[in-house]
Design a protein around this nucleic acid. Structure first.
Lengths: 118, 118
DNA sequence: GCTCAACACCTAGGAACCCTAGGCATAGGA
DNA sequence: TCCTATGCCTAGGGTTCCTAGGTGTTGAGC
């Protein structure tokens, strides 16, 4: 599933819920919490975390006590603010979408429509 | 509002609802129907329509009877299929987002949402 | 002992997409 | 006359994400 434009929100929200996490754990958490909808590639997540850290939304420390060195991320104050902002943006966006396409959010998983690819 | 990744769905859904429309009208309709959330630049919409037409999802005819020549778009059969597919994708996506960030887009009390046919 | 999956991190490069920033032209109201 | 609204268009760039690799360790199963 393409997460274009909403990756930061997903990562920030998950980080907030977990308190702290390393990249690999974030990927696993997003996959399981979304029931497989968000199965993000490492090449998607790691650069995004670096970007967020450059932007000051998260900080990281290296945990060398683990079996393998891990980079543990957590939200900063600015990250909390950014998250709140992104959350609001998402809600406005989703509500706008609802108005245009008039869909009901929840729906039992059914067979996917045949993919149309060009 | 950034529509990254969902522009096609917005355009196709609006075209389906209107039956047919020219680009400028689509922009106006998206702005008003979304209560100002989606205020798209022409430089966003026209190239997207061209892309959709190249892909076979819409066709256009030039209306020369209007005050100014307009390009009238309408959905093709493939466009209907694409729209249904994108709609499903959106619902899966929005439901995934709900699971991660834990919010449901607020819906005003009122008539049930229009039935969505698959 | 060997192999393979899972864990855990990383980057380069490209493709897609959208937005900015213009341009062109006509009609009508201030 | 000037400005706004209508109506179309494209070039170019920036952001973002994904593909496709790479590195190395640990542990389970054969």
């Amino acid at each position: 599933m393409d997460v274009r434009g909403h990756l930061d929100l997903l990562l920030l929200a998950t980080l907030q819920r977990l308190g702290e996490a390393h990249g690999y754990a974030l990927i696993a958490e997003l996959r399981s919490s979304s029931d497989g909808v968000f199965d993000l590639a490492e090449g998607t997540v790691y650069p995004a975390l670096h970007r967020l850290e450059r932007g000051g939304a998260v900080t990281s420390v290296t945990d060398r006590t683990a079996a393998r060195p891990r980079r543990i991320y957590r939200l900063t104050g600015a990250g909390q603010t950014l998250l709140a902002d992104r959350r609001t943006q998402w809600q406005v966006f989703a509500e706008g979408m609802r108005k245009i396409i008039g869909t009901v959010p929840a729906r039992p998983a059914g067979p996917a429509n045949p993919a149309v690819t060009w």
